[in-house]
Every structure is written in structure tokens, then in C-alpha cells.
Simulated assay, not measured.
Amino acid sequence: MILDHFRLDGAVAVVTGSGRGIGAATAIALAEAGADVVLSARTREQLDEVAARIADTGRKACVVPADLGDPAAAGRLADAATETFGRLDIVVNNVGGTMPRPLLETTPEFLTEAFRFNVGTAHALTTAAVPAMLESGGGSIVNISSVMGRVSGRGFLAYGTAKGALAQYTRLAAADLAPKIRVNAISVGSVATSALQVVVDNTELRERMESATPLRRLGEPDDIAATILYLSSRAGSYVTGKVLEVDGGQQAPNLELGLPDLT
């Protein structure tokens, strides 16, 4: 049956930033498809809640609280997978983000930090994971990029540049790691997570964003989790080096920050 192509029975995944939002939804989705999951984020309580939901699916979770702003901490997650479950098949580089800031307030240090958190952390986990994935026969890596990595909007220079770099990193890594390991990314649009809580809780702002999105709604974490499941499973076995746009049809920012012209 075609649905069997989406099964992950016996697979082991690492999902960063998995205490809430897209990361938590992804970890649960992969478990529901049959995978055991290494969970990592800063807050143990959140991870424990996700681990309990994974246990309800009949799968196992390994909780690794860590500051994933440190690339070395991200790299150690590959060891956690092999030490706990004996293999590693799937990596989801979900952690990332950078606060908006006007260009003239974007210092070189701020830009460097954006690269380190959004690209360096993903690279650290990827390079640590590859030997284990090869021992398991191959696998799939999914990076979480952003619509702001391909469209322009004021205030997003550091974030958009870093996410655009992560998209190109995906293409280059896919070439380096083929044919055993597939590498893809998702260009994520506006998703109703804690990062957008101020919008979700404000009817006027939410309606403004929804009206500027062709599908007239914000995304849900499960929209992204379902795409990650596709890319991680046999259903996506002929896909590598691609950046899938899961953004409600956005071709421009759907909420301007209102930064003025320079004078």
C-alpha cells in the first residue's frame, strides 16, 4: 500500500528544538510513523511532555536538554542516538531563529551569531550524524529554512540571509552526501507557534497576516511535520537537494514591520 511508504518502523531520529512548536509536532509525527526519537531543547519540562506523548504511541524517546546555540552540543546528539538506540537514520535541524533588526543596527557580530545559530548548529549536527547514518545504511536530513530566505522585507537582513544560506547549504550538502544520505529543506511560512504568539493573540494582526497569505490562514505545526515525514520516509526517497516551500503561497512578507525609510 502507498501509505506504507510513509512508515518509519525501526528508524531513529534526532529532532532539535523539539520541546514545542514545529519540533514537538515533528517528533510526535515521526514516532506515530514508527520511529524512536532523540529530543533536544533547553527546557527539560517541555521535552518530558513530548516524550510522554511519544510513549503513548508505543515508541521511545531519549531526552537531551541542551543549549543548541552551542554547535558542539548539537553535534553530541548523534552520539545520544547511537548510544541509546544503536543507530541513526533521520536528522531534523529545526532549531534556529533570529530577532528582526534594522540594517544599521545589525552589527557584524549579530550577523555572525545568526549564521552560527541557523547554519553552524545544523552543520555541526549533520557532520556528527553522517558516520552513524552511513553505518545504518543511509538516511535523511531535513533542514528548516524560511520564506524569508527567498523574499525581501525590511528588518530581516540577518535572519533572511542566514536562512537563505541554509537553503544553499542544503543543496550543496545533498551533492556531497548522495547517494546514501538525502538532504532537503523546508522553506517555512508563518506558522502559529510561540514565536508568533503576539500575532496569534491579536485578532487584528492575525487577520492582516492571513489576508496577505494566499491560502488565507497561518500554518500549523502539523503542516510542517507532515512534510518532514514525507521527506524522511521512503515516500520521499527520490527527493534530495530540494527546498520545499510550505508557506501558504507566500511571495512576500505577510506582515511588514513598519520600518521607515532612511533619512
Rank of each mutant, 00 (worst) to 15 (best):
L134T: 15
E135C: 06
E135S: 14
S136T: 10
G138N: 10
G139D: 05
G139C: 11
S140L: 14
V142F: 10
N143Y: 09
N143D: 12
I144Y: 08
I144K: 08
S145C: 13
S145W: 03
S146N: 11
M148T: 14
G149F: 09
R150F: 10
V151R: 03
V151N: 02
S152I: 15
G153Y: 05
G153M: 05
R154A: 15
R154Y: 13
G155A: 11
G155S: 10
F156G: 03
F156N: 08
L157M: 11
A158Q: 11
A158S: 12
Y159G: 13
T161N: 11
A162Y: 02
K163I: 12
A167S: 15
A167R: 09
Q168I: 14
Q168D: 13
Y169E: 13
Y169D: 12
T170K: 04
T170V: 09
R171G: 03
R171Q: 15
A173H: 04
A173M: 13
A173S: 14
A173F: 04
A174I: 10
A174P: 04
A175Q: 15
D176F: 08
L177W: 09
L177G: 04
A178R: 08
P179A: 13
I181W: 07
I181P: 02
I181S: 06
R182P: 00
V183R: 06
V183E: 06
V183Q: 09
V183S: 07
A185K: 08
I186E: 09
I186L: 15
S187C: 11
S187P: 10
G189A: 11
S190R: 00
V191Y: 02
A192W: 03
A192F: 03
T193P: 01
T193S: 05
T193F: 09
T193K: 06
T193H: 08
S194H: 12
S194R: 13
Q197F: 12
V198I: 11
V200M: 08
V200E: 07
D201H: 04
N202T: 12
N202D: 15
E204R: 12
E204K: 09
L205N: 03
R206T: 06
R206S: 02
E207D: 12
R208Q: 14
M209G: 01
E210R: 01
S211P: 00
T213D: 02
P214W: 06
P214L: 01
L215A: 01
R216D: 06
R216Q: 14
L218M: 14
L218R: 00
L218D: 00
L218S: 00
G219C: 01
E220P: 00
P221Q: 01
P221D: 05
I224N: 00
I224F: 01
I224C: 03
A225N: 04
A226Q: 12
A226R: 11
A226L: 05
T227N: 05
T227F: 04
T227P: 00
L229M: 01
L229N: 00
S232M: 05
S233F: 04
R234K: 12
A235C: 02
S237P: 00
Y238N: 09
T240G: 04
G241H: 05
K242E: 15
V243H: 03
E245L: 08
E245V: 14
E245P: 01
V246A: 06
V246H: 09
D247F: 01
D247K: 01
G248K: 04
G248I: 05
